[in-house]
Amino acid sequence: MAVSVKNLDSREFFFGHKACAGCGGSLAVRIALKVLGARAVAVLPAGCMSAVGFNFPQLAFSNNALITPFAATASVMTGIEAGLRRRGEIAHVVGFAGDGGTADIGLQALSGAIDRGDNLIYICYDNEAYMNTGIQKSGLTPFGARTTTTPITGSVRRKKDMLAIVAANGAEYAASASVGYLDDYVTKIEKAAAKPGFKYIHVIAPCPTGWGIKTNETIEIAREAVDVGLWRLREYENGQWLENCAPSRPEDLVKHLTRQGRFSALDTDKLEETKNV
């Protein structure tokens, strides 16, 4: 039976951690592990999820898990996968790296693992800034978003298109997802888990602390990002692109942005401009 949020494993694999209330990233990790189960090995680089999850002696993963150096998610995963294969162990080696850990410092190791076609599931939880170090701009911070290193004007660059980068490197499967649409997210994880080779899932995961939203707005904002067309749900499979859904209410884009404190630097002109970037 296909997984859905209704029949997810009732066991918890990531709990008792110190993430802020309403953290989208911790939801992405928790749900993914429910799909992948007890034989998943969770690999997390430096970033919020490792910072909140591994404070000895308070260790928050009930499956095998480790923190890697910031740039080393994919390469440590490769070594684990090779070693477990030698031991004859069947397992899912799954990475959970932030946007900075994926699109910036970890991009080289990620490219290497894709190039080798290693049998891995790499999940980028994208909160659109370096949150763990205090909300600095990353390569996935969107146009106009204020961070502590783009404090006045907001980011002047658009997000890197990680899905296109991953596909161009030769991934078996790449998909975008949102913690606002969990059914879609878990379906994509299940699909990835069934395929050999390198699989990549990029899940938008709002961070109330860094985005200037209320802690109970995470899911709504994550859905809205998809609905207004800012975050497209796509899949890349067998060399083909598939658009999962069309934006249902593109007219609400500006409303979506103005709800978030981080976009307060955008004046009316700039808000119009975001429609093009």
Binding site: V43, L66, T68, P69, A72, S75, V76, M77, T78, G79, I80, E81, A82, G83, L84, R86, R87, E89, A109
Partner: peptide
Amino acid sequence: SAAMGASLA
């Protein structure tokens, strides 16, 4: 990094 991963395995 890969050597560490393999050793961990």
